Measured scan of single mutants.
Amino acid sequence: MDALKSAGRALIRSPSLAKQSWGGGGRHRKLPENWTDTRETLLEGMLFSLKYLGMTLVEQPKGEELSAAAIKRIVATAKASGKKLQKVTLKVSPRGIILTDNLTNQLIENVSIYRISYCTADKMHDKVFAYIAQSQHNQSLECHAFLCTKRKMAQAVTLTVAQAFKVAFEFWQVSKEEKEKRDKASQEGGDVLGARQDCTPPLKSLVATGNLLDLEETAKAPLSTVSANTTNMDEVPRPQALSGSSVVWELDDGLDEAFSRLAQSRTNPQVLDTGLTAQDMHYAQCLSPVDWDKPDSSGTEQDDLFSF
């Protein structure tokens, strides 16, 4: 819950932080000083300027060897085509990944977070970031790969997607708890209302004896509580940590079903599988986004697919 609360507080303090972009060759504004600060901008989305290598189908939802083989196929196909790589912007948030063309600003792909089953910074092609997700059109699994400016960037994108998945799962947990509370309150309110109706004398007997209905007592009954809980029953509950912020979080049926399955089948359902080692994760978390744009010590960066 700490990640969720800190993310909400950060967004309320400075929503404009989320509009910064990394990996864009110096076009961005001043960047936060450390990885923790940038992680807090996830709610509205972190932007990464990358190059799209392509996509291939895979048979399993996750796995280092599986993704490595898929990336190898994608890279080989991209090299064989001889075409310049498409420059894209990857927007990562707890909602998922939005992929747009840098030149036309046209939407290429919009992947809900619950469809993503794996992401990684490839070991062999260490400047490549990739994720595996279920197609929104059918049940097939797709591996999408992107060329980053350097290994640090690939690791940073991988960690960002993993963190977005974690925050999304926490949102789901909060929403589920809130819905259970509202359902319980609604049920209790309905029981109270039913009890009051059972003990209320029939209207005919009131008229016969000349008694008047006590409207004041009726007004004191917990009807307002019942209506408050039943009027918006169809509205999706939102985490309290975000009250007053500009973010509107809505959970669709697909996300609810997917996270429910994860909660039942996995020990740590909030953790998205990645190909990063503990050492890689520690190294990337210690980086400032400013470091992502620094040239690798191995030599001059080449803006070309064939540089790796």
Score class of each variant (00 low, 15 high):
Q302H: 00
L66Q: 06
Y131A: 14
T36I: 05
T274H: 00
R27H: 03
Q240N: 01
N105K: 12
S298R: 14
L223F: 08
Q173K: 01
R13W: 14
L251T: 13
G244H: 02
Q155D: 13
T277L: 00
V128E: 13
N211D: 07
P237E: 00
L223K: 07
S224H: 09
A284R: 11
A162C: 04
T200I: 12
K220C: 06
E178W: 03
L66E: 00
S93W: 13
E216L: 11
F169Q: 01
V290R: 06
Y118H: 12
T231G: 11
P32N: 14
T209D: 01
S21W: 00
A185M: 13
S81W: 10
Q264F: 05
N105P: 00
Q240R: 11
I71G: 10
T158Q: 01
D122W: 09
A78S: 07
N102S: 12
R27C: 12
Y52W: 03
L107R: 14
S297I: 09
A69H: 14
A219T: 11
H28Q: 03
W35S: 13
S288H: 03
V236W: 02
K184F: 05
E180V: 12
I98E: 14
V247S: 05
H137Q: 14
A145P: 14
K30R: 11
S186W: 03
S81P: 12
S117C: 04
L272G: 06
Y114G: 04
A133C: 10
S227Y: 01
N102M: 09
E217D: 10
S186G: 06
T41I: 09
K127H: 14
A154S: 14
V248I: 00
G299D: 06
K204S: 12
Q60E: 06
P295T: 01
S307I: 03
M124A: 07
P32C: 02
R9G: 10
D122S: 10
L141V: 04
F306Q: 05
V161T: 08
N110W: 09
V167G: 08
A154Y: 00
Q20V: 04
E109N: 09
V192I: 09
L255M: 03
Q139V: 15
S224K: 02
N232D: 14
S227Q: 07
L215I: 15
F129Y: 09
R27S: 12
F146I: 14
K184S: 11
S117Y: 06
G299L: 03
N102Q: 08
E250M: 12
F146M: 01
K91Y: 15
I98N: 09
D252Y: 09
V247R: 00
L272R: 01
L42D: 00
G190H: 05
A162I: 06
K62Y: 07
M124V: 09
R13I: 13
L215W: 14
L193T: 03
L85K: 08
L99T: 01
R29F: 05
S245F: 11
K152L: 02
G8V: 08
Y114Q: 06
E142H: 12
Q106L: 03
N268K: 07
W172A: 01
N110L: 03
K83L: 10
F146S: 14
G299N: 13
A69F: 03
D234E: 13
H137L: 12
R73A: 09
V161L: 15
T89P: 10
A154Q: 06
S93R: 11
R95C: 09
L31R: 12
G254Q: 12
L215T: 14
V247Q: 03
R29P: 13
Q155S: 14
E235N: 06
I71M: 12
D296A: 09
Q264P: 01
G45S: 06
L90D: 14
T38R: 15
V75N: 08
T89A: 14
T230C: 04
I108S: 04
V92I: 06
V111S: 15
V75H: 12
D291T: 05
A228D: 05
A7C: 06
Q279I: 05
L251D: 09
P237V: 02
I116S: 02
E235M: 02
T100N: 14
F48Q: 03
G63S: 15
L276V: 00
G194D: 00
D214Q: 09
L262E: 02
G275W: 06
N34H: 12
L141S: 04
P222I: 09
A69E: 14
C148N: 03
L223I: 11
D252I: 04
A70G: 15
E142G: 15
N110I: 05
S246Y: 00
E109V: 02
L255H: 11
R115K: 11
V92T: 14
L212M: 10
G210N: 02
R238W: 13
E301W: 04
T89M: 06
S298D: 02
E64I: 02
H28I: 15
A68L: 03
T38P: 09
K87P: 13
V236S: 04
L4P: 02
K176S: 15
D126M: 02
V248E: 04
K152D: 08
R39I: 08
E180P: 00
C199F: 07
F259N: 02
L53P: 12
T267F: 02
D37N: 12
G82D: 13
H125P: 06
C119L: 09
L159P: 02
I74H: 12
T218C: 06
L17E: 14
F129P: 13
L251F: 02
L206I: 09
R13D: 12
